[in-house]
């Protein structure tokens, strides 16, 4: 049986992990390679690296990071942030990433998803979506530019469009829950999961172990992504998996 996946997310700026793991005895808590190996040992199922570099040089450094991580890591990893063209995708995938994630660039030009899927296969193309509840819409609205800009898209419409264009997976972040640590957005995850046949990764809101069980059991998410809850040792990947097993969720 296919297992539910746990995915720690690492923010990388100019080649260094920011908000890095604070608790383990690492020689260098800002080293993406060392952190990646640490999470692999913890039985993380995949990793996501989000490049938050603002500069061209910073993004070039990211390519070196990807190459180095790919040389040591024996689990899949996705790279997102600042990917705006097929060329950007090619550079990151050639460096050894398994998937790229597109966000703002895909909303601005949905055909980019199609182009990426045609060149590299749908399995490489993750579409990341930031969504926030909107009273006027009576649903969730899609935002771009790191959650700063509202778009015209209602979330299930955008998800259907993205998958129609060839997205192989959806990384769904709830802006309402992000940082709140009160659990994943079950209703949002359910709404998106019900309109697509590709895997959905729930993100935003993880605060304790049980939150992961809830999003798997109540929204049937395929994977759950979290950052600070793992980095700051509020819980660990291994502990979350133990709780999931107790609650009957199938994990590796």
């Amino acid at each position: 049986m296919l297992t539910k996946r746990l995915i720690p997310c690492l923010d990388v700026k100019d080649g260094r992990v920011v908000k890095g793991v604070q608790f383990v005895d690492l020689r260098d808590a800002g080293d993406p390679v060392e952190l990646a190996a640490f999470y692999d040992e913890q039985s993380a199922d995949e990793l996501v690296f989000l490049d938050i570099s603002a500069s061209h040089e910073g993004r070039k450094t990211m390519v070196d990071v990807v190459r180095e991580v790919a040389g040591t890591l024996a689990i899949p990893f996705t790279v997102g942030g600042g990917i705006n063209s097929v060329d950007d995708m090619r550079v990151i995938l050639r460096a050894g990433a398994d998937k790229v994630s597109l966000n703002t660039a895909a909303v601005l030009r949905p055909a980019l998803i199609r182009e990426g899927a045609n060149f590299f296969g749908s399995q490489c193309i993750v579409v990341a979506i930031d969504a926030k509840w909107d009273e006027g819409l009576s649903s969730w609205r899609v935002y771009t530019h790191g959650g700063r800009k509202p778009t015209e898209w209602e979330v299930t419409d955008w998800v259907k469009e993205a998958v129609g264009q060839g997205a192989g997976e959806i990384l769904l972040t709830s802006m309402d829950q992000d940082g709140a640590k009160t659990g994943f957005d079950i209703a949002l995850t359910r709404a998106v999961n019900s309109v697509v046949t590709v895997p959905v990764i729930a993100s935003g809101g993880a605060g304790k172990r049980e939150d992961f069980a809830d999003v798997f059991l109540q929204a049937d998410a395929d994977a759950a992504l979290a950052a600070s809850v793992f980095h700051y040792k509020e819980t660990s990947v291994a502990e979350v998996k133990e709780t999931l097993r107790e609650k009957g969720v199938n994990v590796r």
């Binding site: 296919l2 192989g168 046949t197 395929d222 590796r252």
Partner: peptide, 19 residues
């Protein structure tokens, strides 16, 4: 097929860790 014999939908691709 994306649907079991019993008619239940499932995800395609088969993506992730399986035993």
């Amino acid at each position: 097929r994306g649907k079991t014999r019993a008619g239940r939908r499932y995800k395609v691709p088969h993506m992730g860790w399986n035993k």
